[in-house]
Amino acid sequence: MSDYNFAYLDEQTKRMIRRAILKGLAVPGYQVPFASREMPMPYGWGTGGVQVSAATLTPEDTFKVIDQGSDDTTNAVSIRKFFEKTAGVAVTEETEQASVIQTRHRIPEAELTEDQILVYQVPIPEPLRFLEPRETETRKMHSLEEYGLMHVKLYEDISQHGAIATSYAYPVKVSDRYVMDPSPIPKFDNPKLEMAAIQLFGAGREQRIYAVPPYTKVVSLDFEDFPFEATKADHACDLCAAEDSYLDEVILDDAGNRMFVCSDTDYCRGRREAGHVGRLGEEAA
């Protein structure tokens, strides 16, 4: 029996967060303000995602945490341990086994189902922030659907780089209404934003929650003559030979040797166990 209330937050706080989540689901892509609490980690370390997970978890859930696709980074481990301790929920590294997945900056490769919830950690929820610093003005733009400025940003990219250079946190239009920042996921993941699972986004420092219900239309912004492309490095995973997953580039030695491996560690493990072998991989025993 833990000394903590279930999932650390008190019931009234969880209720407030759930109200924000419901509002977010009712208005896909709309940033709902919420009273972000002081959590036992500093701002910038996933407090938004943690609060949304805390409000969402029930004792029957199985919880997974990934950080840039990996279950075993320091932060993924410590958040997982946090919920083991305060909520006593079962935890897993296998995507298919989890009912709630908290993620920093990636969407898992495995297709998610209607029984799952994906919770994103968001640093800056406002997609227009770097072009328009005034909060009063960006709120008006969202409420009046004045998104010309968003295309100005893409225009600037093309004029400076010859192509839309935004490679992560690529803005999307949700349900033909709100423009949303999908958090710093690589643009490769954008097509996955149309999924069967519930997607919740939490920004603790900025105090905003937003959501995308299952099967919602999510379109990446682009120009007619510069259409959106979900690109990735032109390699296969060196461990499991996957051609369609997002890769991390790892430098091996001082001579400049490098390898490309799946960013989603669980996906890679699963493929290797099923017998797939990449260029640098070893035959499974």
């Binding site: 072009l131 004045e146 010309g148 400025l149 295309h151 100005v152 225009y155 600037e156 093309i158 004029s159 400076q160 120009f223 007619e224 003559d225 510069f226």
Partner: peptide
Amino acid sequence: RMNVSAGGNIGERLMAVGARHYGDI
């Protein structure tokens, strides 16, 4: 907008009323 190029400044009004072809803009 001082931090947007001249072309972007002129194009903004066009994009605000729905122009979506980079070349034309």
